[in-house]
C-alpha cells in the first residue's frame, strides 16, 4: 500500500492510513485496512461514518478508540425508542424560566414606572431584552454539545436502529450540514465539524436518505489471524498456544447454527476467564465449565455441549495450522 499524502486532521494530527492503523494498534484496537481507510475518509471527507455489523465486533469501541487517538472528547448519544430532540439536542431550563417570569413580574412595576399609556409601556417592554428563550436557559444535550465543542469532538450516536424513524429524519440536517435549527433561537453551526459515528445492529433497515449521507462500514466477525491479534492486544498475558486454541474454537463455533454467535467481545471475555483459571491448554471439561461466557442462550449451550469433545479436538488441531488454511 502506498502512502497517501498527509492531511491535517481535525485532531491536529497528520494522518495516513498506515499511521491510523499503527496508532490504533497502540491503543489496543486492531484494525484491518478497511476500517483504517474508513477513519481516514471520515476525517478527510468530513462525512459521518455509519458502522454496521453483528453485536460485539467493536463498533462502539471504534468510536472510543478514535476519540482517544485524536485526543478529542467523546460525546455519546445512546438511542432508544422514544428518543426525541429534547433529550438528544437541547432542552429549556424550565425551572429557571419560571423563576425568571416571577422576577419579571415583580420588576415590571419598576420598568413601567412613569410610562404613559399602553403604547409607551409596550415600547419599554420591547426595549427590555428578551432572554426568555436565550442561551442562558438552554440546556445542552449530546448533539448540541458535540456541535459546540471548542476543539471538535467525536460524536457517537449508538444503536441508531433502536430509535424511531422520525429521529433518523431529524438527524439528516445535522449529518449533512453539521448544523441544527432551534426554532426559538435560529440555526447553530458547528464550530469545528465533529467526527460522527453512527452504529446500527440492523434491527431495522435505516433509511436510504440517511445512508446516502454517510460512509458505510460493515464490520464482520474477524478472521482467525485478525482475531488472534486482537486477543494478543487486549489480553497480552495469555500464552500464544492457548490464544490460538481458543480463537480456533470460537471460529468453529461461528460456523455452527446458533441463536447468537460469539463475537469478539465474548472471545476477549473468555480469554480473560481462562487466564484467571490458569488454563494452559483447551480441554473439553474446561470449555464446558466456561461455556456460559461465550454462549448466552441455554439452547446454544446445550447444542454445543453435545459435540464439545469433537469441537475441542478440532480446535486444537486447527490452532497449529497457520491462519488462513482450512
Amino acid at each position: 500500500m502506498t502512502l497517501v499524502k498527509p492531511i491535517q486532521g481535525p485532531g491536529g494530527k497528520t494522518d495516513s492510513i498506515e499511521a491510523i492503523q499503527a496508532g490504533f494498534e497502540e491503543l489496543g484496537y486492531i484494525t484491518n485496512p478497511q476500517i483504517a481507510t474508513s477513519i481516514y475518509l471520515a476525517q478527510n471527507l468530513e462525512k459521518p461514518l455509519l458502522v454496521e455489523g453483528p453485536p460485539g465486533v467493536g463498533k462502539t469501541e471504534l468510536a472510543i478508540a478514535t476519540s482517544k487517538y485524536l485526543g478529542l472528547p467523546l460525546v455519546r448519544l445512546q438511542c432508544y425508542e422514544g428518543l426525541d430532540e429534547s433529550k438528544a439536542l437541547y432542552e429549556w431550563k424550565y425551572g429557571k424560566q419560571l423563576l425568571y417570569t416571577q422576577i419579571l413580574r415583580e420588576t415590571l412595576g419598576e420598568v413601567l414606572q412613569g410610562a404613559r399609556g399602553l403604547s409607551e409601556s409596550m415600547k419599554r417592554l420591547h426595549q427590555f431584552s428578551d432572554v426568555f428563550f436565550s442561551e442562558q436557559f438552554l440546556e445542552e444535550r449530546p448533539l448540541m454539545k458535540a456541535m459546540r465543542a471548542p476543539a471538535g469532538a467525536v460524536l457517537l450516536i449508538d444503536e441508531l436502529d433502536k430509535a424511531d424513524q422520525e429521529f433518523e429524519s431529524f438527524l439528516l440536517e445535522l449529518l449533512s450540514e453539521y448544523q441544527i435549527s432551534i426554532p426559538e433561537i435560529g440555526t447553530i453551526k458547528a464550530t469545528i465539524k465533529p467526527i460522527v459515528f453512527l452504529t446500527s445492529n440492523n434491527t431495522r433497515e435505516l433509511s436510504d436518505a440517511l445512508k446516502r449521507r454517510c460512509l458505510h462500514l460493515y464490520i464482520p466477525f474477524p478472521d482467525t489471524a485478525l482475531e488472534r491479534r486482537i486477543i494478543a492486544a487486549r489480553v497480552p498475558d495469555i500464552s500464544v498456544k492457548l490464544r490460538n486454541e481458543l480463537v480456533a474454537f470460537i471460529q468453529e463455533l461461528r460456523g455452527l447454527d446458533l441463536k447468537k454467535l460469539p463475537a469478539v467481545s465474548e472471545t476477549i471475555d473468555w480469554a480473560r476467564t481462562l487466564l484467571l483459571l490458569h488454563a494452559n491448554t483447551l480441554d473439553a471439561d474446561m470449555v464446558r465449565t466456561t461455556l456460559n461466557v461465550i454462549l448466552k442462550f441455554q439452547d446454544d449451550i446445550e447444542a454445543v455441549g453435545a459435540q464439545l469433545t469433537t469441537l475441542t479436538n478440532e480446535a486444537l488441531k486447527a490452532a497449529e495450522r497457520p491462519p488462513g488454511l482450512k
Binding site: 500500500m1 502506498t2 478497511q34 481507510t37 474508513s38 475518509l41 455509519l50 436510504d208 458505510h216
Partner: peptide, 20 residues
Amino acid sequence: LVGYSSRSMLKNALALVLPK
C-alpha cells in the same frame, strides 16, 4: 483523495461510499 495508484486501497475506500 486516494487516487488510482493502489488497487486495494481504492477498493477499500470506494467500498465505504458506494455499497450501503
